[in-house]
Design a protein around this nucleic acid. Structure first.
Length: 647
RNA sequence: GCCACUUUAGCUCAGCGGUAGAGCAGCUCACUCGUAAUGAGCAGGUCGUGGGUUCAAAUCCCAUGAGUGGCUCCA
């Protein structure tokens, strides 16, 4: 007999060799149906794996990440089996579970390829196989055996994977006619997989290396219930309604033009207003924190980027230098603002008493992103960073870092952004040569970031080896409507540029010292930020941000003049107002989406004209009755002030 | 850049070898009408662009621009 300890501390005795599934069955029939994987002494294993010694046991169901993982990983094998059955001779790369579903990288051979129309066929085959209750059987094999199996099968990808593995750690899983190299764990059998949807096909380089062969990646998702799949697909549909590209067009915020060029967004009047408001807000906050606004040109001499090192690193993949009539003279569109700001730092000798110097600029930069990577406003070729560079003494680093975190908090709070991930990127301790700067400085900077984040109560994820070569950083990521992660705010410590531009200051010891530089952009870029803001708010902005807060609608064209008078009055009070001239005609109903997003609608007609008043409707609150114009102006100003003061 | 798909009216899409279609938006008229849908009528497109095949191309083929989902990349 062995003792099994459950998470609640209960201990029960079972026969040696009992499986987690049998234990679940002994507890309840229902549990046995729902359980997907188990953890034995902290190791996630198959339910069918015999347990031979006393153990702590945890059973994973759908709601546990481990349960979903086993489910989707098993689904991935099922898909591979279906593909092998339909397309014999297919070679398989890797097929893991991912955040939402799974994929498998496959190689169908040179003359075959998969398209969307093939997906239902594969789905059907998968359903067929799933219903036949195939069991997932684990077997441990020697490296030789494993290599022989896949060499004989002709699958060079698996052979390559096995070659890198250590003998004695290799296991196979088999279900039906399909055997795969896999660590597991898997479901006991395929019957729990009840709903299947293959979502898309994409190319993916073998082992993520663009020099190697591109395999076909098939993405899919499965569920234990059809309803769960229906709900998931519905959720994806709803997310599409919040897509910033759709909202941007509907709200007339921004546009792209084939004639202007790929990835070059243009801000329409309303979008420009929105952006202006965001910029003013940030300027106000930054002013409180001692930043000074600067302005720099959009181009700089090529030599500037040779000095900064960016030319060497990115020059060939960038917009080409601009030539002038002057032989040998070349300018580049600026891909970042730092070199310009460094030159400004060098404008005059700096004393330790002058530091920190904080230069802020809404700097428009141009980067030649790969065409396939462009995406709406989140990945573009010309964009405006809410950039600033802080030049400070090493001993000021932590304090400056804290202040930047505070600014980011102010912004995220003001816009009600709660769902973000803060990632601290440190250098790879195994590979210190990759980075510039002394050990001492790196240690100081990394400690400063970690301490600053902790001091501000920020929950961070620490990633080793993710630091830039010039310094560690703290990034803020948010998810878009369909759950993709985008980096917004970033704070980066830089030892490289002060060195390259030979920046210095005179210390109290009358010696020259190198300042440390912090790059920071709380929004990241105006474009990406607006995109994410749109998706988070579904276009319903707070009042202080709304490009047109008030729409005045005359009930018939008889009252157009009065409506214009109302608009003039409100505009004079600095209330952004729009007349809905599409509704001049009698009987016309408002059916424009846009009106749903405007906080206030004023309806004016005969009664209102007589009493110099407006009939007020507030979004979400309905009819507020008629009131004199002055009163309405006061009301809306109060509301905006209240919102602004809480920022 | 790579893989796959898409590209037809302002928007959403149908048509897939035989003279360009719908709904919504727009315009005109009628309705004293009130926050996602009044009615009738009108107007909107060399079917992304350039070649080719064919008696005939939106439709088939090639090239190219742009978009989408991924991969790679991301200062």
């Amino acid at each position: 007999m062995i003792k099994i300890t459950f998470p609640d501390g209960n201990v029960k005795e079972y026969d040696k060799g009992v499986t987690a599934l049998e234990i679940a069955q002994s507890i309840s029939h229902r549990l046995a149906e729902e359980v997907l994987a188990a953890s034995v002494n902290g190791q996630t294993v198959d339910l069918a794996r015999p347990i031979d010694e006393d153990a702590e046991l945890k059973l994973y169901k759908w709601d546990d990440a481990e349960g979903k993982h086993a489910f989707w990983h098993s689904s991935s094998h099922l898909m591979a089996e279906a593909i092998e059955a339909l397309y014999p001779g297919t070679k398989f790369g890797i097929g893991p579970a991912i955040e939402n579903g799974f994929y498998y990288d496959i190689d169908l051979g040179d003359d075959r390829h998969l398209t969307d129309v093939d997906l239902p066929k594969i789905e059907q085959k998968m359903m067929e196989l799933a219903r036949s209750k195939e069991t997932y059987k684990r077997s441990e094999v020697s490296k030789d055996e494993a290599l022989r199996y896949f060499a004989q099968k002709g699958d060079e990808y698996k052979v390559e994977l096995i070659t890198d593995l250590e003998d004695g750690t290799i296991s196979f899983y088999n279900q039906g006619n399909f055997t795969d190299l896999c660590r597991g764990p898997h479901l006991p059998d395929t019957t729990q997989i009840k709903a299947i949807k293959l979502l898309s096909i994409a190319g993916a380089y073998w082992r993520g290396d663009e020099k190697r062969k591109q395999l076909t990646r098939v993405y899919g998702i499965t569920f234990p219930k059809q309803k769960m799949l229906d709900d998931y697909l519905k959720m994806l549909e709803e997310a599409k309604l919040r897509d910033h590209r759709k909202l941007g067009r509907e709200l007339e915020l921004f546009m792209f033009s084939q004639n202007v060029g790929q990835g070059l967004p243009m801000w329409l009047p309303k979008g420009a207003k929105l952006r202006e408001r965001l910029e003013n807000f940030l300027k106000k906050v930054q002013k409180e924190y001692g930043y000074e606004q600067v302005l720099t040109p959009h181009i700089g001499q090529k030599e500037l980027y040779v000095t900064s090192g960016h030319y060497e690193k990115y020059g060939k993949d960038s917009f080409r230098p601009i030539k002038t009539p002057q032989e040998g003279e070349e300018f580049m569109l600026k891909p970042m603002n730092c070199p310009h700001h460094c030159e400004m730092y060098k404008f005059k000798p700096r004393s330790y008493k002058d530091l920190p110097v904080r230069y802020a600029e809404f700097g428009t930069v141009y980067r030649y992103e790969q065409s396939g990577e462009l995406h709406g406003l989140t990945r573009v070729r010309g964009f405006t960073q809410d950039d600033a560079h802080i030049f400070c003494r090493p001993d000021q680093l932590k304090e400056e870092f804290i202040k930047v975190i505070e600014i980011i908090f102010r912004i995220f709070n003001a816009l009600d952004f709660k769902d973000f991930i803060a990632q601290v990127s440190l250098r790879d301790p195994e590979n210190k040569d990759k980075y510039i700067g002394s050990d001492e400085n790196w240690e100081k900077a990394e400690a400063a970031i970690i301490e600053a984040a902790a001091q501000k109560g920020l929950n961070t994820v620490v990633e080793l080896g993710e630091a830039a070569f010039y310094g560690p950083k703290l990034d803020f990521m948010v998810r878009d409507a369909i759950g993709r992660k985008w980096q917004l705010g970033t704070i980066q410590v830089d030892y490289n540029l002060p060195e390259r531009f030979e920046l210095d200051y005179t210390g109290s010891d009358n010696q020259k010292h190198r300042p440390v530089m912090i790059h920071r952009a709380p929004f990241g870029s105006m474009e990406r930020f607006v995109a994410v803001l749109l998706e988070h708010t579904a276009g319903k902005f707070p009042l202080w941000l709304t490009p047109d807060q008030v729409v005045v609608m005359p009930i018939s064209e008889k009252f157009n003049d009065y409506a214009k008078k109302v608009v003039d009055y409100l505009n004079n009070c600095d209330i952004r107002t729009l007349i809905d001239d599409r509704n001049e005609k009698i009987g016309k109903k408002i059916r424009d989406n846009e009106l749903k997003r405007i906080p206030y609608l004023l309806i004016v007609g005969e009664k209102e004209e007589e009493s110099q008043s407006v009939s007020v409707r507030k979004q979400g609150e309905g009819d507020k009755g008629a009131m004199p114009m002055e009163e309405f102006a006061g009301l809306i100003q109060d509301e905006v002030n209240r919102q602004m003061s809480s920022l």
